[in-house]
Design a protein around this nucleic acid. Structure first.
Length: 579
RNA sequence: GGUCCCGUAGCUCAGCCGGAUAGAGCACCGGAUUCCUAAUCCGGGGGUCGCAGGUUCGAAUCCUGCCGGGACCGCCA
């Protein structure tokens, strides 16, 4: 149950009546009117800008239109009071009977409360992580991984058919470097002293097991063969091993992708040619020269003719090369083919979760999408900014060149998946985020994860206490939500009422962090009510002399618990029963 | 040179497809514990929403320019 949708239906019905009576033009469009919570609770429960939005079209003054609309809405049983305010807002107070219905609906829906169908089953592909298969995941990947996963869950909860996808960059120079690095470990496994790992190769110990596996599989057979022969063999083993590593890292964070898509299949199966052919047929591929990049000394710039995609025709800043000087395809060409493949799979929406350093990629992806899908498919690029690691306020030093980076596994092992996930969503994705290993384990108000989980645990604690201390027959029987009249209780009810709308808007904006902020607010409302019970014992949940009131409050607690649990579940964070 | 992101209270940040007197936490000051976990809560002070224009009945929000911070900029992925 969504009270804003409920009121919106009533407002729409009233407007339709006005249209039927020719008080509004036939072609009046109601789609841009909003029913929202007013900023100031003194303004009521729901406000609408309908009169302001339609005044011009109706040829009426906003306040006159608002008065007319107020008259039509006033009689509705759900609406207790309606007032015209300010320039022409309609402030409505809902009838007291609406709130019990809402709480009842929460209890009936349970883990499905907040679920909606606004996605209308549209097929959405969310591609996230897509880390190169050259080693274990490091902390830089964590934010995009969590963001993408939470976004996927949010879209699913709001009625989208979601595919979680990972693009494996298993073609190109980096995996050849991986193969050479693994080959060295292979020689090492066969007893050779390989000394220091030469610069340019991956030095990590994680390749040692790969070397041993190769030694076991091939024995010394690869030792005296030319690189052209052993490289493909070693590469395949190494990539498979790295993907196992990465899957395990992701599993530690509770992340599972449905599709792992190999870039190499695009090369091997002629699908790049097929995609480029389609661009060619539209006259979007040509051979030409690009101007050198400005502002940067073009050290190794070589002016040459190359195969280009006419990206500028779709708003990109430059046309984009499809072939390298050695004649092989660029990464971008593979990306064209990959996008082509996704479009072919019938998605309505393609979401790319990328690191902020890929910001320049958005425009060219949009250009390719515009060219290939001709506007049928919506492409959404979300960039995740950096995470800065701290320990007790001191920055954690990392040197990429020396291979000293904090791995995903180190973070998860130290603070746990729940803390990791929640913290990654406490900032909107395009703002940088500070993560302090010590702070996030504190059990205090400063730690948002704790604060929300503690609210959930406290509720469970009360419910356990009730089971323990209250006679069973007093727990049975009806609840009467109309008895929740205290300001702190009403604040909680309003917060709960906002949940379905919040999820819809977070999904539409592709902003899962809003769920995290809402959870903090809900937890805050709950802790406030709890504490009020200390000062005013009649506000406690377990009230001995009034079984009906107690049952009401315990049911209320269960409703709040569902809200906390459902929100946490979208973020992929466990709701704990005790702490 | 160009593109993208950011600029809101002392600090860290929210601010819903433009909406009424701009919010929260931290910090600071002052309070609450015979209690279902005080691991919490209540109250108070504190803001020219970077600057200047524009659109609008109405702008922190949309547009343009400027200032400041960050990221990226053919043949790496």
């Amino acid at each position: 149950m969504n009270i804003f949708q409920l009121v919106r239906d009533h407002v729409s019905a009233a407007l339709e009546r006005m249209r039927d009576m020719n008080e509004l033009p036939r072609d009046t469009d109601f789609s841009n009117i909003a029913t929202e919570p007013p900023r100031d609770p003194a303004h009521g429960d729901v406000t609408t800008n309908a009169a302001l939005a339609l005044a011009k079209k109706a040829g009426m003054k906003p306040r006159d239109l608002a008065e007319r609309l107020a008259g039509l809405l006033a009689g509705h049983p759900d609406i207790a009071q309606v007032e015209v305010a300010g320039p022409g807002f309609l402030n409505m107070r809902l009838d007291d009977a609406v709130w019990p219905r809402l709480l009842q609906a929460v209890l009936e829906a349970g883990e499905d409360f907040g679920r909606s169908a606004i996605g209308r089953g549209r097929k959405v592909n969310v591609e996230y992580v897509s880390a190169n298969p050259t080693g274990p995941m490091h902390v830089g990947h964590v934010r995009g991984a969590v963001f993408g996963d939470a976004l996927a869950a949010l879209l699913e909860f709001t009625g989208h058919a979601v595919t979680r996808e990972y693009y494996i960059n298993d073609a190109g120079a980096q995996v050849e470097v991986l193969a050479r690095s693994a080959y060295l470990r292979y020689r090492e496994a066969l007893g050779e002293d390989i000394g220091d790992i030469p610069p340019g190769l991956y030095p990590g110990d994680y390749l040692k097991p790969v070397g041993r596996a190769l030694a076991e599989k091939y024995g010394p057979a690869l030792l005296d063969r030319p690189e052209a022969e052993w490289l493909p063999l070693v590469r395949d083993v190494a990539i498979a091993a790295m993907m196992e590593l990465i899957r395990a890292d992701l599993a530690a964070l509770g992340i599972t992708h449905e599709v792992f898509f190999s870039e190499r299949t695009l090369h091997d199966e002629g699908r790049i040619e097929a995609a480029l052919k389609e661009l060619e047929e539209r006259g979007l591929v040509y051979v030409g020269r690009l101007p050198p990049p400005k502002g940067k000394p073009p050290e190794d710039w070589e002016d040459r003719e190359q195969l280009l995609f006419r990206a500028t025709q779709f708003g990109d800043d430059s046309d984009r090369p499809l072939k390298k000087s050695d004649g092989s395809y660029t990464y971008f060409a593979a990306d064209v083919a990959y996008l082509h493949d996704k479009i072919g799979r019938g998605y309505d929406q393609l979401v790319y979760v990328l690191g902020a350093d890929h910001g320049g990629y958005a425009k060219r992806l949009e250009a390719v999408n515009a060219a290939l899908s001709e506007g049928r498919v919506r492409l959404v690029v979300r960039l995740c900014q950096l995470v800065r690691l701290f320990r007790g306020g001191q920055p954690v030093k990392m040197s990429k060149r020396a291979g000293e980076f904090v791995t995903l596994r180190e973070v998860v092992d130290e603070v746990g998946p729940d803390v990791t996930r929640f913290m990654m969503l406490t900032r909107k994705n395009d703002a940088p985020l500070d993560f302090d290993f010590e702070k996030v384990r504190e059990q205090s108000r400063d730690n948002p994860v704790f604060y929300v989980q503690y609210a959930h645990a406290r509720i469970c604690s009360v419910l356990r206490a009730a089971e323990r201390e209250v006679a069973a027959d007093e727990l049975r029987g009806p609840a009467d939500f109309s008895r929740l009249g205290d300001a702190a209780e009403r604040a909680l009810v309003r917060r709960i009422a906002a949940f379905p709308r919040l999820l819809e808007q977070a999904a539409a904006a592709h902003e899962p962090h809003r769920v995290a902020f809402w959870l903090l607010e809900l937890a805050g409302d709950f802790h406030a009510l709890w504490n009020k019970g200390k000062e005013f014992p009649h506000l406690r949940f377990i009230v001995a002399d009034d079984p009906e009131l107690m049952r009401t409050r315990l049911a209320f607690l269960r409703a709040i618990r569902y809200c906390l649990a459902n929100g946490l579940s979208i973020l992929g964070v466990r709701a704990v029963d005790e702490m």
